[in-house]
Design a protein around this nucleic acid. Structure first.
Lengths: 153, 153
DNA sequence: TTATAAGTCTATTTAGTTGGTAGGATAAAC
DNA sequence: GTTTATCCTACCAACTAAATAGACTTATAA
């Protein structure tokens, strides 16, 4: 399970992606629009800013904007920042590998072999999906839903 | 990340799979062989017994055995018992669905659509891998490793 | 039938994480 | 220099994970 922090973060990023190119967005507006506790939101955005995913401006007319285009921000990257490694066990993590303390031989550990497949499957999806892709899928789903409703009318 | 509990549980099950058909195994032996804290191990085995994955006999000559053949115990089942749902968010869980509190329309939520893919990918692997499969992969890896070493000699 | 070898159960401890809040410091714009 | 915003540090409550302690129950063999 991903944490609320990550979920809130993705929600905020999605909102910022929609506003991309239209100037900075205030924390307060973002929090209200996405129904996220304000101060918690603040901490999340700050963390994303400190690693360069977001940029911000203080003072009047300030706020947050994406640090790069939505198509260049991958979901995998965001989840790793806010939630830690994707791998289900550390001994198969690419970004945070640590040897297994219990098992005798990592190369032949059955648990490890299976969990490596899981890690690869997760990473394959999340690292090849960008904020822009996510937006696109959401819009596609909305269009399809609408067409069904139209048909019913 | 899966919990230590789940990891320990899988280790113990793998050991019990190797001993399948050869009578019960003692908690104490299992704990020592797999380097798992004894009392913690005990609690894990008990939980697996209470859902029918394991069976046990008390008294002299007692111990734990698998409740069914290794080929009929899936890793997905075990992870769900010890670690909870596989899904990264509750709103895409098959076994523990709960609606999303923040998002306005689940059907068009981009986060949900992507996380559903992730859930399906994880479940696809873990529900189609049995203890026996895991054992097999481990043995295959061992054989391959050995042949490389032989070649070098 | 009794000693004892085993699993069963309840409770507790400790440490760490998650989710969230408070309030002042700092910077930019007007 | 005042207003408007982010930035930063610290804090707290609730929960979960990991592990341990110890008394209790039951089954078996001698």
């Amino acid at each position: 399970m991903i944490s609320k922090k990550t979920k809130y973060g993705l929600q905020a990023l999605l909102a910022l992606a929609r506003a991309y190119g239209a100037g900075p967005v205030l924390i307060a507006d973002l929090a209200e629009e996405e129904r996220i506790p304000r101060k918690f939101q603040e901490a999340i955005l700050l963390q994303l800013k400190n690693v360069g995913v977001l940029s911000s401006r203080k003072g009047k007319g300030g706020g947050y904007t994406l640090g790069k285009p939505p198509s260049e921000i991958s979901i995998g990257q965001i989840v790793r920042i806010l939630d830690g490694p994707l791998a289900p066990v550390e001994c198969v993590s690419v970004t945070a590998y640590r040897p297994c303390t219990e098992c005798r031989d990592e190369n032949t550990c059955g648990i490890r072999l299976v969990m490596k497949d899981v890690r690869d499957a997760i990473a394959d999806i999340l690292d090849h999906t960008s904020l822009a892709d996510m937006q696109q899928r959401s819009e596609d789903a909305a269009r399809q839903q609408k067409s069904v409703v139209d048909f019913q009318i």
